Simulated scan of single mutants.
Amino acid sequence: MFEPRLALASLSGEADAEWAKQGAEWAGAAFLGGVSLDEPTRAAARGIVADRDRSEFLPADPVAFVDRQLSALSGVDVRPGINVRSTTAAPVREVAAVAAEHDAIVEINAHCRQAELCAAGAGETLLRNPDRLVPLVEAAASAGADVSVKVRTEHAGVDLVDVAGRVEAAGADALHVDAMDSESVVADLAAATDCFLIANNGVRDEASVREYLDFGADAVSVGRPSDDPAVLERVADAVAASRRQKGQSAD
C-alpha cells in the first residue's frame, strides 16, 4: 500500500498538504484531515471550534478542499490519504472519486471520540453500529479508491475483530488501529483479516516499532510528534531495520 511503512496520522485541523510535505522525507503515506463532509459532522466540528480550544478543517466546499489538498501533493514522494467523517454515504463516495484520481487513500473515521462528533453519529460510535459503518466503506470502495478504516481499541461492547471482518468484506483495504494500551489486539486483527494493518499509538522509537511489527502490523503511524523530524527519523530507521531483519524490502 505504501513504502516506507511509516505513515503520518491525521491531526484535526492541522494535517494538511504542507504538513505532509514536511514529513515526506521519512514517511510513505500521510493521512490528511480529518475532514467533516456532511452537515451533521460539520455542525459538530463547528461546535468543537466554538466551545473548545481545538482546530478543525471547515472549508465551504469539503470536496473541493480535498481536491486542492491532494493536488498540492502532486510530485511529492509520499502517498496521500484523506481521513473523513460522515454519517452519510453520498459525500464519502464523492470524495473517494476525487481521491481515486490522485491515487490517494480514503480513510473512514471510526475513531474520533469527541463528544460532539459522537453525538452526531460519527467517529467511534460507528464501531458500536457497524451497520452504519459498512455503507460508508462500500461507498468509498465503489468509487475506485483504496479504503482504510481508522478504529480504536478499548471501546466497551465492541468486538473489533468482528468489525474488521465486516469492513473488509465491504471493501476495506486497510485498518488503521489506535491500539491505546491494548497493543496485542493488533495480533488478533492480523490473524483475522488480510487488510493492510497500520498500528498507531505511542510510536516513538525502536521498541514501540518492533512491538507493533512483531504483533503483525504491516506499518506504523506517528500522530502528535509527526511534525518532529527527530521522532520521524528515529521511527523510520527502526521500521527499515526491523524489515531488513525479517528479510523484507525497506525501499
Score class of each variant (00 low, 15 high):
Ala120Phe: 04
Leu127Met: 04
Arg128Trp: 03
Val92Met: 10
Arg79Ala: 14
Arg85Thr: 01
Arg79Glu: 13
Ala100Asn: 05
Glu107Ala: 10
Val106Tyr: 04
Glu124Lys: 00
Glu124Gln: 09
Arg113Lys: 07
Gln114Tyr: 02
Ser71Asn: 15
Ala141Glu: 07
Asn109Leu: 07
Ala89Cys: 13
Ala89Pro: 08
Ala119Lys: 00
Leu133Ile: 03
Pro130Trp: 09
Ala72Asp: 15
Glu101Thr: 09
Cys112Thr: 07
Gly121Ile: 08
Val98Gln: 06
Gly121Gln: 07
Ala139Glu: 05
Ala99Glu: 03
Ala89His: 07
Val95Pro: 03
Glu107Asn: 11
Gly75Asn: 08
Val98Arg: 03
Val66Gln: 11
Asp77Cys: 14
Ala96Leu: 04
Glu94Ser: 14
Pro91Val: 14
Ile82Tyr: 14
Cys112Asn: 07
Leu73Ile: 11
Pro130Arg: 06
Leu117Asp: 03
Ala89Leu: 08
Leu73Asp: 06
Pro80Cys: 15
Val106Leu: 10
Glu107Val: 05
Ala120Trp: 05
Val76Cys: 11
Cys118Ile: 02
Leu73Lys: 12
Asp67Leu: 12
Phe65Asn: 14
Ala64Cys: 11
Ala89Trp: 09
Leu70Cys: 13
Ala64His: 11
Ile108Ala: 02
Ser86Cys: 11
Pro62Val: 10
Leu117Cys: 05
Val78Tyr: 13
Asp131Trp: 02
Val92Thr: 04
Leu136Asp: 04
Ser74Arg: 13
His111Pro: 00
Leu58Pro: 09
Ile105Ser: 01
Leu58Ala: 11
Thr88Cys: 12
Ala139Thr: 01
Ala119Phe: 02
Ala122Trp: 00
Asp77Phe: 10
Val134Gly: 05
Ala72Tyr: 15
Pro135Leu: 05
Ile82Glu: 01
Gly123Asp: 00
Arg85Ser: 08
Val134Gln: 05
Gly123His: 01
Ile108Ser: 09
Val76Gln: 13
Gly121Trp: 03
Ala115Phe: 02
Val66Asn: 04
Thr87Met: 13
Leu70Pro: 00
Ile108Val: 14
Phe65Cys: 12
Ala60Thr: 15
Ala96Met: 08
Leu117Arg: 03
Ser71Trp: 14
Ile105Trp: 07
Glu116Tyr: 02
Cys118Trp: 00
Arg113His: 04
Gly123Thr: 00
Leu127Phe: 03
Val137Met: 10
Pro59Met: 10
Glu107Cys: 12
Arg68Ser: 14
Gly123Trp: 00
Arg79Ile: 08
